[in-house]
């Protein structure tokens, strides 16, 4: 109960700056609680950065932002050892990745080499520079953004890399009413931004994560989840189905979602709520299917019944 109050407060706080996007805010928090990384795919100016700032503020995390370009090198992210003339030693200058929340802007502009350096760090929660392992801070959370159009001169993330992101979100245009409210607000001066109150303490975050591990997933629910996964692997509409990692991600997010709604067990609604964000970027439609990942997820949800096998 207490945890839900905290979470609701955090959502409300973020909603102050990102109007009318509560669902996406909740999903982003869910992703974070589930120790996953988030990929936001949307046009510029839709509030991607605002969301990541807000998340960092609310959770009281340190955060850094890296603008990815085609000449960005792995060292630019991970850090370099610099020769210190005074001590006659090499001292390590940590890169921007040594932070709790990293905003990797336009990740598809960087070369695959740089992308993979980041993705490796995301997977292992540590970096290896010049043979030395350096652990990343905990929590470590990456929000990568990607521009879905203007693809020329970019290196789109391959499917195998997309799988590393727990969720992919699209923010979308705001509701006209929310937009009107935003327009009516006094605009902050350039270079300034509204700093949000920290709502979730580190201990509370740890408590949430602990609670996630204790959520019960019944046989009925696992049956449903497995039917979903099997459907993506067997139906003709899917060229690539959900991997076992995808299935785990789905269950993990559903569990987190259950905690966020103060339930000790997962119900099918939890799975269905997180399904588009978790599954859409992992599924590839086959040639016969005229639609993208989201359409596939909708089809999946319609064709797999919750109860009837």
């Amino acid at each position: 109960m207490q945890l839900q109050g905290v979470i609701d407060a955090a959502v409300a706080e973020i909603a102050r700056v990102l109007l009318g996007k509560e669902a996406q805010i909740r999903l982003a928090l869910c992703c974070l609680f589930a120790r996953g990384h988030l990929l936001i795919e949307d046009l510029p100016g839709m509030g991607k950065t605002t969301l990541s700032h807000a998340l960092a503020d609310v959770l009281g995390l340190s955060w850094k932002r890296v603008q990815f370009t085609s000449d960005l090198l792995p060292a630019d992210i991970l850090g370099v050892s610099v020769y210190d003339r005074n001590d006659a030693t090499f001292s390590f200058h940590p890169g921007p990745i040594f932070t709790q929340l990293l905003l990797a802007d336009e990740i598809n502009r960087a070369t695959p080499r740089t992308q993979s350096a980041l993705l490796e760090a995301m997977a292992e929660a540590q970096v290896t520079v010049e043979g030395e392992r350096r652990p990343l801070p905990d929590p470590f959370f990456v929000i990568a953004t990607q521009n879905p159009i203007h693809q020329s001169g970019t290196y789109p993330l391959p499917e195998s890399q997309l799988d590393r992101f727990l969720m992919r979100l699209e923010l979308g245009y705001p509701h006209p009413r929310a937009e009107r409210e935003m327009l009516l607000r006094p605009q902050a001066a350039a270079g300034q931004r509204q700093v949000l109150r920290q709502c979730i303490e580190a201990s509370q975050l740890a408590a949430i994560r602990k609670a996630v591990g204790q959520v019960h997933a019944s046989d009925n629910l696992l049956d449903y989840l497995q039917r979903l996964v099997a459907c993506t692997r067997q139906s003709a509409e899917f060229a690539v189905g959900l991997s076992p990692r995808g299935a785990l991600a789905l269950l993990g997010c559903a569990r987190t979602w259950a905690v966020m709604h103060s339930r000790g067990h997962v119900v099918p609604e939890d799975v269905q709520m997180v399904l588009p964000a978790v599954a859409a970027h992992r599924l590839v439609p086959s040639g016969d299917f005229a639609g993208d990942g989201l359409a596939l997820v909708a089809l999946l949800q319609r064709s797999v019944d919750v109860i009837r096998p």
């Binding site: 119900v267 099918p268 609604e269 269905q272 949800q301 319609r302 064709s303 797999v304 019944d305 919750v306 109860i307």
Partner: peptide
């Protein structure tokens, strides 16, 4: 009940 609709919904 619609196909795929969960009990809660």
């Amino acid at each position: 009940r619609a196909p795929g609709e969960s009990p809660g919904r």
